[in-house]
Simulated assay, not measured.
Amino acid sequence: MKLYSYWRSTTSYRVRAALNLKGLAYETIPVDLTADAQQAEDYVRLNPGKGVPTLVLDDGTVLTQSLAIIDYLDAVVPSPRLIPEEPAQRARVLAAAHTVALDIHPVNNLRLIGQLKSRYGATPEQARDWMDHWMTEGFNALEPQLSDTSTFSFGEAPDLADLCLVAQVYNAHRWGVDLSPFPKITRVEQACLGLPEIAAAHPDQQPDAIGS
């Protein structure tokens, strides 16, 4: 398999972690979002959404969107399971994952921040304040969803919610978000990074990492 990825992309981070947890071998192909490599004609043919990650299977099948990719991986390699089968637990895990993937991430991604700067003249400081605000708002919604006692978000093994969480907290560290009000989120991040498979998916460990 080939994974088109950008080292700092939180969506790519999620998929790298899922592939590693399932023990699947893949080749990382860097896509430099800051150099607009995602706009290149050959890449747009591969992924019309002009984003990352893109997973190309050994038979040439192309998959996009991190949550869809992870759902596919769970279907073809059920162990370890990342999306629970039990309906209520599945709904809880998906709700927490969606809090990150649908509420926090879309208003903080590179494309949107670029538009804030180019269309509306946002300064770097204003852009940072924007990101910090929406990450904090999202974490305020996520924190009470998590278990008070388990090692990970909902149990003793990582699931989809954990992969979304650990990737987003990487971004929070990067932009200086105050995490002291979020002890459960902090606990889960530490537990995730204690696993070699997730630690290996960390942005700083990627072949295209800059200044790591």
Score class of each variant (00 low, 15 high):
V93F: 11
W130L: 04
P48Y: 00
E137I: 02
A200F: 00
A191V: 00
P158I: 04
T99K: 05
P181C: 09
L46G: 13
H98L: 15
V93K: 13
M135R: 09
S66K: 05
H133C: 06
D42T: 14
Y43T: 08
F139P: 02
T186Q: 15
I104D: 01
Q205E: 07
T99W: 09
T123S: 15
K2A: 02
I29H: 14
D74K: 00
Q205K: 07
E189G: 10
G23W: 12
A200E: 09
G60L: 07
G194F: 09
P124Q: 01
L67A: 11
S180Q: 05
D129G: 08
Q168I: 01
P144E: 00
L55G: 15
A201D: 01
G23Y: 05
L165A: 12
K117G: 01
P144F: 09
A97E: 13
N171T: 07
K184F: 10
P78E: 15
G138V: 04
T34V: 13
V177L: 11
D178H: 13
R45N: 10
D204I: 01
G51T: 14
A91T: 03
L163S: 07
Q115F: 15
P30N: 07
D208S: 07
Q38I: 01
A201C: 05
I70A: 00
V100A: 02
P30C: 03
G155P: 09
W175Y: 15
S9A: 10
